[in-house]
Nucleic acid binder design. Structure first.
Lengths: 209, 209
DNA sequence: TAGATTGTTAATCGATTAACAATC
DNA sequence: TAGATTGTTAATCGATTAACAATC
């Protein structure tokens, strides 16, 4: 197998490499050395080479890396070379914002449903998807073999719904609720805790004063 | 001074401690030991004690930590024991979602303005604040001595506006645009790159398959 | 070929964990 | 006082950086 247990720090950086490679392609740049890329990204050339070599030797001595090729390889590593169906649970402002965000579709994340219990929002359109009642969630998740769910609901609701979603087949949660979800080992949670991010900003801006 | 250069990893964890302490207070728990907290948070007691001791000895041998007191101390460390004025640049779905998010106000982040150039949204209400044209930004930032700005605009617009905002007095950016902002040393950027987070989820869910 | 740059091993640095004396 | 638990030093672990032989 290609993996020998990749560290969290490396995975954290991969999407950023991917973004820089995209920018390079937009600029029509066809090849890049680890040294050149390191200067643009403000990290060391060593780190870039170490990171990439976790997955294979994508470069060539004396030449560097082919931008298009490396971009494609990272897409494969991140499994975004394939389409993933997902649902959004909660059609509040944040859920609707995610649903309307076209970039996700561009990256191969196909939103198959947005769910809410509030009659006021059910039937409303959000980025090409109609908001459905929660009662239809099981059916849609199972019929479409959906593995990813974004949770844009309050923390109590999130904790309550997780086990159901897992039993329907969900294997990864994109969690925007302010709570740490307890899930079995084969299920993954990626947290986006916005208030915590804002607190870190506060610390960093005001710590010296 | 109280600081001896705190590591990023520690700052990353502080808001999470804060959240757990809040939950403990809600549950009416008055004291907690590092061991007990470590089991709840799935980390080691050593790490908790090391982290907290960067800022002072908040505990007591044989007793543990007073929940209310520690909660208050962390608020002070994070500088969220005071009110911070901020603005939101961009009144798209995401900007409006942030503006409507009442938790930020609860934490002492006071949204003084939401700005956009789109005539369709100007004048619209978002979480108690009216959307204003960008032309009014300078005035509002300077009059209110605003130091924090959330950037919910496309990457090109974000890159363009940063220097202006710094010249008005902004010292911290909460950046939702898919770009790394180049800022002087006295200015801080906290990134929330949602697509990158979603890619990491994709990797972690599908890597083995 | 000579120059450039990778892939990879070794050295360094920093963060986490363990251990325990201090002390409430 | 005895038991519990901190604060803090030392040991371990892991991640980053440096160095350089391999090679395009």
């Amino acid at each position: 197998m290609e993996h020998k247990e990749i560290s969290k720090a490396v995975i954290q950086r991969l999407p950023r490499y991917y973004r820089y490679l995209e920018d390079l392609m937009d600029q029509g740049i066809e090849r890049i050395s680890s040294g050149d890329l390191s200067r643009r990204m403000h990290l060391t050339a060593s780190q870039i080479r170490q990171d990439l070599n976790n997955f294979g030797g994508f470069g060539q001595q004396g030449y560097g890396y082919n931008v298009f090729n490396l971009h494609e390889e990272i897409a494969k590593i991140l499994k975004i070379d394939q389409v993933h169906s997902m649902i959004i649970v909660g059609a509040g402002h944040l859920g609707l914002a995610l649903s309307n965000y076209t970039n996700f579709r561009k990256r191969g994340f196909d939103i198959k449903g947005v769910f809410d219990n509030n009659p006021k929002v059910i039937g409303q359109e959000a980025g090409g998807v109609k908001v459905s009642p929660m009662s239809e969630m099981k059916d849609i998740v199972e019929k479409n073999h959906i593995r990813l769910a974004a949770l844009c609901i309050p923390k109590d609701a999130a904790v309550k719904i997780v086990d159901d979603l897992i039993s329907y087949g969900v294997r990864g949660f994109w969690n925007f609720a302010h709570v740490d979800l307890e899930v079995p080992e084969h299920v993954v949670v990626e947290n986006v805790h916005l208030s915590e991010s804002l607190m870190r900003l506060s610390y960093r801006v005001f710590e010296e004063q």
